[in-house]
Design a protein around this nucleic acid. Structure first.
Lengths: 341, 341
DNA sequence: CTGAAAGCGCTTACAG
DNA sequence: CTGAAAGCGCTTACAG
């Protein structure tokens, strides 16, 4: 059909060689007037680079892999927004992406590994996986929260203790004392959250027992259904609770329905804080006070990864990683505490 | 660092030529015992193809472009889930993707155009854009709802009239007669929805006037804020309304808050139907009855595009496109109508 | 400062 | 059925 315009066409049109056109396209040395002529040819011919040819010759793909643990809840708005955030941030850096959903328990190794300059992993990957990467590839790998056990890998830790403590302090200062936590225990991240809650409460002299927690163990259903049922169970065993802290927005989304069905009004009858600070927490009414990243995490993550690609001294970069801080984004759901009459 | 394993290494290891290895990798002719030997070498060496070299030689990129109108609400859960749905479906067909957010009013043309086998567009693109594609590229283009004015382009129409009519019929059968519509008028898709509502109501003898609609013109704020304010306005001018039909889940998300603030309970005091059938509609409590695709749209779209890439007779494919049907997914928000006492 | 040439890792006719 | 060779569109030393 249409003839593809290549760098040769541009060179011919501008009366120069392909090498020089390549230099101009990549911002290398060239005399101003020749550069000008080449740029004019580029736009007259509507030339655009063939990124595949570029990648194959320069052995730089300009592509970052995004590898997602298939076993996690990949269809939640939270993870979807995380992934699209990565894609958009990469595109600001002129990097493309390849996404692969992969079950770390499976035999096959992801195809994308041989076609990327770096890797972002989301979820829980085991040591077997890291061994494969370490032994067969030389690109850097990055993630957050969980540590990465390889030399060319780095993880941005999350200061979960500070984040949960801020939420607990906010509730205590509002006058709450009967505070409950509702969240999962199915992975290390969720366990970190629970432990942070227990230690924050202890810090201010509140013992946490099983009565003010819902662990969501051995329950099935969607996350919001789990949140719904768990909230009902919790209110039964702890009727005097005045504030709920949910381990994720998805749980809270269901939990809100449980409160409504009991005709409890937020925040008049009960206050709510969630975790994730997602679109839902911000946009539902009443707005839900939520724990989220103080500084958007993804740009930090992407910038670090891209630095690692170019930087030979990765240890220096790794030593200068600062943990991601969490903050509470206060909304109507904690505008005031229940008025005890 | 690590030496990259290429097709040459495999050939040497198996004691054959690169051409034959290439044949085996692509499922072409080869004697069984040589094929066996090559496959063993591939797995022993952990060889994976370099997709860039493959693309540059075969002039097939195995990559589909996803071009998104930058002016639309790209950060809503609805559009995010649409995009990730496309990505996952493409990956089932062994296609990669390149996403670009692009303002159709901008001068520059999208970079991805020269590096894809086909294009999916999301949003409202003007004739100028289609002229550029038609004149400079030969890959097929696909979208849904809006028509595409080029030969190698196809669009899956959406039977919006049927969809909205089903919702209206559902409400009328429940005994509602005071039904209001709340939605935008900022683009043709939203206007199609409003017109479908008016004609569905007329069909059953209900005149629709300005009092039972909220157009969301000249309003600012997030979609959910617009939905919140619009719901308050509507209830003021139409206090006897018993059912609300929202043009999108984002509007409904805010609208639910407005209803709660007026202590209206769903569905006891007022019934609600939304449009999009998103994660939120399904997972919030009470679940919101929502209009969505009868058959998931994205697989249909992707399959058609991939057929168009291989098929020389595109007109035949275009003539056999069936419009996407909508359906209502009934949930608690329309479990029963308000009981008039 | 610029051009001619080698070569990245593949695929694809074309011989043998 | 299999191998040797040309070539996809680029980049990158290397001469001039």
């Amino acid at each position: 059909m249409k003839k593809k315009i290549t760098i040769r066409d541009v060179a011919r049109h501008a009366g120069t060689s392909v090498g020089t056109v390549s230099n101009v396209l990549n911002g290398l040395r060239c005399s101003p007037k020749l550069r000008e002529r080449i740029n004019r040819s580029v736009s007259e011919l509507k030339y655009t680079q063939n990124m595949y040819a570029k990648a194959v010759r320069s052995s730089r793909t300009n592509c970052i892999g995004i590898l997602i643990d298939k076993r996690s809840e990949t269809n939640t708005p939270w993870i979807q927004s995380l992934v699209l955030d990565i894609i958009q941030t990469l595109s600001n850096y002129k990097y493309r992406n390849m996404i692969e959903y992969w079950d770390p328990c499976s035999q096959f190794q992801p195809q994308l590994l041989s076609n990327v300059d770096g890797l972002i992993i989301i979820g829980n990957f085991n040591d077997d996986f890291f061994h494969i990467v370490e032994n067969n590839y030389s690109f850097p790998v990055i993630t957050y929260w969980n540590a990465i056990p390889i030399k060319r890998g780095a993880s941005v830790p999350v200061n979960i203790n500070n984040g949960i403590r801020k939420a607990v302090e906010h509730l205590l200062l509002l006058g709450h004392s009967k505070i409950a936590y509702l969240g999962g225990t199915n992975n290390s991240v969720n366990c970190d959250k629970i432990n942070a809650f227990i230690s924050a409460m202890k810090r201010y002299g509140h013992e946490v027992d099983e009565n003010c927690m819902e662990h969501f163990e051995n329950v099935s259903g969607s996350l919001s259904e789990i949140g719904y049922q768990g909230t009902l169970r919790l209110l039964k065993k702890m009727p005097d609770v005045t504030a709920l802290l949910y381990g994720s927005d998805c749980y809270a989304m269901g939990g809100m329905g449980a409160l409504a069905s009991l005709r409890l009004k937020i925040p008049d009858d009960i206050s709510v804080i969630s975790f994730d600070n997602s679109y839902w927490a911000e946009n539902t009414r009443p707005g839900i006070t939520s724990i989220g990243f103080q500084i958007p995490l993804i740009p930090v993550l992407v910038e670090l990864l891209i630095k690692m690609i170019d930087e030979p001294d990765i240890d220096n970069l790794k030593n200068n990683i600062v943990p991601a801080e969490l903050d509470i984004f206060i909304r109507q759901s904690t505008e005031h505490a229940k008025q005890l009459t």
